[in-house]
Amino acid sequence: MNYTLHQLQIFLKICQLKSITKASEELHLTQPAVSIQLKNFQDQFPIPLTEVVGRKLYVTEFGKEIAQAAEKIVEEVNAINYKTLNYQGELSGRLKLSIVSTGKYVMPYFLSEFIRLNPGVELIIDVTNKSRVIESLELNEVDFALVSVLPKKLKVKNIELMQNSLYFIGSSQLNFKNPDDKKNIFENTSIIYREQGSATRTAMEKFITTNKFSVQKKIELMSNEAVKQAVLSGLGCSIMPLIGIKNDLKNNDLQIIPVKGLPISTTWNLIWLESKKLSPVANAYLDFLKFKKEEIINKDFSWIAKY
């Protein structure tokens, strides 16, 4: 057998994504190039690694075992590269985070300078909903997680990053006959929710229940961006994090509708398991945040104060 590290990396990515097309996109390769490498890799084994059923790619049991071995090999190669950088005096290793979807408007600003200063650090971020974020933390799949509500069932440590404010948002094209009657706004307007498991949805439902608003028309969407686009189109209104609609407010495409009891204020927290032994990279990142957090907030998020 004469397979290459490149082939192992491609096969592993195909197994993870169950798609040649998605693997090619993530690896920044053409689809034919990935297909050729998969074929060349497969030709070295007498047993099929993958199979296509109904135009869908499946990994065989044998293929799964090869993928597990490939993952260990790739990790060992990465470890060799990191050790080389360490001997050269550079901070190196992986920094893995799982963040809630609205956190994508926040977390990059707290990472960019750290990554620029430490080119030997490989950054991996999974953007998903709150339930999956907590699960990945609990399973020790990541170093840190970004949440706006601290989990109750896990023992975690945390560092507060910045405030998260949620407002009632509508398209600027909407005109309300009696804007002071907020109860009627909720009853007569379609209200757009995030999916179950979202912290934004939990906060929104708590606010509506506490104020005894009756929502007659309810729409559920699976991401903050999808909710924003629906609100922009005039499909309905929603309670949304201010952090994700800066340009839409600036361009007068969206409006903040004043409602008593809003904004809802929470805090973005970077959390990690209390029992976790942090890597040198993770510890270095915490030190970076302690010194740079306020500077980043003042530089990149000062615009929030005017709302």
Rank of each mutant, 00 (worst) to 15 (best):
L49D: 03
I192T: 06
L97N: 08
D253I: 00
D126G: 09
I208R: 07
G244Q: 05
K299G: 05
Q37L: 13
D126A: 13
M1F: 04
C15M: 09
E25F: 03
D248P: 05
S190K: 09
G103E: 11
F110P: 06
A282W: 01
D287K: 13
A145E: 13
K206Q: 14
L146Y: 13
K177F: 11
L117G: 03
A230N: 10
V281R: 00
A67Q: 03
R94Y: 09
D180W: 01
I271H: 10
N269S: 15
A79D: 14
S131D: 14
V156M: 01
S35C: 09
Q88I: 06
I192M: 03
S172P: 03
L270F: 08
T21N: 09
T189R: 01
C237L: 13
I80C: 13
Y87C: 11
D181K: 03
L123T: 06
S190G: 12
N283E: 12
E122T: 09
S279C: 05
F213H: 06
Y167K: 04
I159S: 05
E113H: 05
K152P: 02
N188W: 00
R55T: 07
S172M: 13
S275F: 04
D180P: 00
I257N: 05
K292N: 15
L174H: 13
L154P: 00
Q42G: 10
P108D: 10
S148D: 15
D43K: 15
Y105R: 07
L161P: 03
K306A: 15
I191M: 00
N184V: 11
F41I: 04
E135P: 01
N86P: 04
N81Y: 05
L221H: 02
E274F: 15
E71I: 07
I208E: 12
M162E: 01
N283M: 12
E113S: 10
A70V: 07
I256A: 08
L27W: 09
E25H: 02
E195V: 14
Y285D: 01
K153N: 13
N188L: 07
I36Q: 06
S198F: 00
L123Y: 09
K293M: 04
E138G: 05
G54V: 06
K217F: 06
